[in-house]
Each structure stands twice: as C-alpha cells, then as structure tokens.
Design a protein around this nucleic acid. Structure first.
Length: 499
RNA sequence: GGGGCGGUAGCCAAGUGGCUAAGGCACCGGAUUGCAAAUCCGAUACGCGCGGGUUCGACUCCCGCUCGCCCCUCCA
C-alpha cells in the first residue's frame, strides 16, 4: 500500500516514503501555554495524532514529538496588534482573577507572578486534555518538549546561523535572520520576497523596520531586560524568537537534520514554518528540513469563525463539561468530531455534528460489545489483507480520507460477521487509528448511578401494573437527566447520552 | 493588491470524463412496542455555486464570475 499525503511544500499529493528506514520522524507544533487550548487547536493536534496512528497502522515505527511554547513571547518585534503586551503577563493577570473567583483549584498556582508556574499550570491542563482525547504523544513525556528547557540549543543554532552568514546583529542589538541569504525563502507559503508586498497586512512597525536589512528579516534573539522570562546570551540577556524553538527542538530530539513530517495549523505556514525552513536549512546546510509539510484547516463554530465575543471560543473543557452545547460530551465523541472531516477542508463544529459523532461512537461501541460477547474472549490474528482493513487502509492511505474510511466501517459495523474473533481483531486495528471505541481507559459509563437505577426499577413496576402514565413520566424524568432509556429483556435500562 | 484552499441533498461528507452520484445524521414508510426509545428492513440528489468552452459525452478538464476560508510578521 502506498501512502499519499498532500504536501504543502509542493501543493500536491505525493507518495510518502520515510527518509530513514529505522522510523518515521515527525514534529508537530504544539500549544502556547498562556491559556487553555481550544477545540481549534485540538483539531490540529488530533490531526497529527491521526497521521501518526495511520503510519503505525501500516507498520511504520513513528517518533512523534510536540513542542510546548512557554517562553512568553511579546507580540514580537512588530507591536503587531498594538497591544504590545507580554502574553505571560496577560496570563498571569487572568490566573490571578481566576484564583480569586475560585476557577483555579486551590494550590494549583501558588504564585501567579511566577511565569513558570503559569506555564506549568496550562501545560498540565493541555496534557490532561490531550490525554483525554487520546493524543498518543501526550502520554510520552520525553517527546513533549518545552521551549524554556532548550534555550541553550537555540543559542547554539543562532551562533551557527551568524557564522554562516544567515543572521546578523542589528543596530538595535537584536539578532535577525537575513531572508536574502536564503534563496528558497517563500517556497512553502508562496510568500516569496517579490510576492510579500511589504506591510500589506498593515501590521509593520516602522521603527523596527529600520533596524533590519530587509523588511522580512525576522528576530532570532532579542535582548530585553524588561521581558518577564529572560536568559543570558552572547547578545545580552533576553529571549529567543518564536520560530527558532521548533527548528532546534526538531533537530535535537529527532536526531536528524532532515525529518519526515512537520505538522501544524494552516496559519502557521507563514511566517512560522517558512522561517523554520530558513533557519534549519541555513544551519544544517541540507536542501530539505521536513520532507512533508502537512497543515490542518481551521474549524468554524456553527458556520462562523470562532470568536471570543460570540462566546464560541470553546476549550476542550467547555465542550466536555457541557458549557458549549448544554450537554456533557464524551471525549470519544469530541475526538471523532474533530477527526472525521477531511483535514484540508474547513470543518464546521456544530451541536448537530456532535450528535452525529455520538451516534457513530455508540454504534461502534455496541458492535464491539456484541462481538466480545460472542467471541468469548477469543481474538484472532488478522493482517491488512482482510477485505475491511484493506478498504479502510486504502481510504487512509489516500491522504487521510476519513469520510471514506468511515463509509467502510459503518455498514460493516451493522453487519453480523461469521467469524466474530476475526471481526474483533479487525475492529481493534481500526480502533488503533480512530481510538473512539473505546478511547483508552474508559471510566465506567454511569450505569452505577443508583438514583437512575431506582427510577428504571420504578418504570418496570409501573409497566407491570400497566400504569402507563407513571411509566411515561418516569421515562421523561430520566431522559431529561441526559439519559437514553431503553427496554431490554432484563427490564428498563438507562444509558448516559454521549452528547 | 499578492499567495493558497474550497463550494456536491435539510445537515455532515465521499466520488468519477460515460452503468443506478459512497457513507452517516435528520426526515418518511414498515416490522417491533401499551405508546415511545433502541434495533432491523425499505424509500429518498432528473442534479453536484453561476456562466461559457473543450468533448460523441463533464459534476469531473479549461476559462471567466461569484461566494466562503487561511496567510501576507499575535494566531492551530
């Protein structure tokens, strides 16, 4: 099976083959930890998880790493949004307020003035969310890289870039990357120096420009004694630029100058990934940094851009805990919702979509339950030549076509397979990629709620007495508590709704 | 203004230069049910943003238009 992935670098689907035989090396841009990650962030993180799982499905060993940006960047060297505020300072302010209102648990952040504690607080929250949603790399602490732990290798790379003529110290003391020293600048994004039409975004600060040799030159190190987080350096105490961390950590942790796949959200194509390429290739001298650049499109919420003012800037917690849609959502449902539409299309995150996904999760879960009961603990061995896996795999290999993959799985999941042990093995393989039925260690489904069980018993009693009015009223009561009420040979059962 | 991606039924979403345009949800009909739910069976796009072109034939290729999304130094 050849795997086709769409490569942003070439704007077309290409056959994927690993650079090195031992494993696939993959780097994903992770979160900034100045706030809780939202569902849009997680679409991108889950996208990288699904690439990894797909490669593993086809038998590749994958080394996947993700960064945590915790340096507390200013709004960079441009005063871009006019606020000019240190993000860590803003986060500190927010945490202080949340502490007062009790939103931050007792003891979670002792001192909001300490940026490391703030970063730590949001990093923990991110990892918790990522684990809840089944992002594999979140279970591998050695592959989660913090920018603040890697300042030394950033300084090394900056020195390399200066000595190779790719970087210079400006009259303002800031170390800049010289885009003119790198002819391929713009190849990834199409924003070549000719195309850039300087300042078209209207966010360039004139003062900063005068210190650069070319307006597109970007910052590698900024000496700034007022910055909250700062480190000593040959260029003065200050902090690294935004782009340098990924170049350094990818090379350092993955151990190669050329990696296989680099992922992120579509907004990172320019400038972030463009700059990473310039830095990495400038430092290593290789003609490639990442062979494949893969980007996930943004998601919309109810047909519109996520926006804080419309209250649609939902965090994972908001969705799972019912603040977004009014009903608690099972993590598997959110996971499926965020991975099921094609990563290169805008996805529209809706209440209705969640209900859709919940139905699919339920169907797959019930199919598993049925197979497990029939198989008596027996699971066969299957390989990818099994017809279902072959089709499922073909869809995945076609640039991660999850819609097509689900179109294979769903009709099969309502069938009655002759060989249940084999079917169970097939389902396991499918679930290694989807990870929704089940999603890791399930907490008990809520069937142990004694009040609900009592209501079910009362329904059975009412029905036995043909007291339909009572039975209907009780049913409504359970349903409004977020349960689905079913009849079964063993009597009435209530199952917590997934979304 | 420049670079990139996309517009398929009520909704989500595959797909192909030519048999009946996947799959899911919703809706409708049936089985089942005290009635429902769940489950099972069945039906459901005369059309693929608009206009033109190429072709024996296009939703699929080309051109123009239009609408939506991302980027053009905060952003997943």
């Amino acid at each position: 099976m050849t795997i086709q992935f769409y490569n942003t670098l070439t704007n077309k689907a290409e056959e994927f083959t690993p650079v090195n035989d031992d494993c696939v090396r993959m780097y994903s841009c992770g979160p900034t930890v100045y706030d809780f990650a939202h569902i849009g962030n997680f679409r991108s993180f889950l996208f990288s998880d699904v690439i990894r799982r797909t490669l593993e499905f086809f038998g590749h060993k994958v080394h996947h790493v993700m960064n945590i940006t915790d340096v507390g960047h200013m709004t960079d060297d441009s005063s871009a949004d006019g606020a000019g505020e240190d993000k860590m300072a803003a986060a500190a302010q927010r945490v202080k307020e949340d502490k007062k209102s009790g939103k931050v648990p007792e003891g979670a952040v002792e001192n909001p003035e300490d940026p490391y504690q703030i970063a730590d607080y949001y990093t923990k929250a991110f990892l918790e969310d990522a684990q809840t949603l089944g992002v594999k790399v979140a279970f591998e602490p050695e592959n989660i890289l913090k920018a603040t732990d890697n300042i030394d290798i950033m300084q090394e790379m900056i020195s390399q870039l200066i000595s190779k003529g790719h970087a210079y110290v400006g009259p303002d003391g800031v170390v800049y990357y010289s885009v003119e020293s790198f002819p391929d600048y713009g190849k990834l994004s199409g924003n070549t120096l000719e195309n850039l039409q300087m300042g078209a975004g209207g966010r360039i600060n004139e003062t900063d420009q005068s210190n650069k040799r070319h307006p597109a030159d970007f910052m590698l190190w900024k000496a700034d004694s007022t910055h909250i987080m700062k480190w000593d350096s040959p260029w003065g105490a200050g902090y690294p630029g935004w782009h340098i961390e990924c170049s350094c950590m990818a090379r350092n942790r993955l151990g190669k100058d050329v990696i296989d796949i680099h992922t992120g959200g579509e907004d990172l194509i320019f400038p972030h990934h463009e700059c990473e390429i310039a830095q990495s290739r400038g430092a290593t001298g290789a003609d490639t940094f990442a062979k494949f650049w893969m980007h996930a499109r943004f998601l919309l919420v109810e047909g519109e851009k996520m926006s804080k003012s419309k209250g649609s800037f939902w965090t994972v917690r908001d969705v799972l805990e019912g603040r977004a849609t009014g009903i608690n959502v099972h993590p598997a449902v959110l996971r499926l919702e965020l991975i099921k539409s094609h990563y290169r299309s805008n996805m529209n995150f809706t209440r209705k979509g969640l209900v859709d996904s919940a139905n699919i999760v339920k169907r797959l879960t019930e199919f598993r339950t049925k197979l497990e009961a029939a198989a008596n603990g027996e699971v066969a061995e299957v390989d990818l030549s099994h017809p279902i896996l072959k089709e499922f795999g073909a869809a995945l290999a076609d640039d991660l076509n999850f819609s097509k993959a689900l179109a294979v799985v769903l009709p099969w999941a309502s069938s009655d397979p002759d060989n249940v042990a084999e079917a169970l093995a097939v389902l396991n393989k499918i679930n290694d990629v989807l990870a929704v039925a089940p999603l890791g260690d399930e907490k008990s489904g809520g069937g142990d709620d004694s009040e609900i069980v009592a209501l079910c018993k009362a329904i059975d009693a009412a029905r036995a007495a043909k007291d339909w009015a009572t039975s209907d009223a009780l049913r409504k009561q359970i349903e409004s508590a977020g349960y689905e009420v079913k009849n079964s040979p063993e009597g009435t059962i209530a199952i917590k709704k997934l979304a």
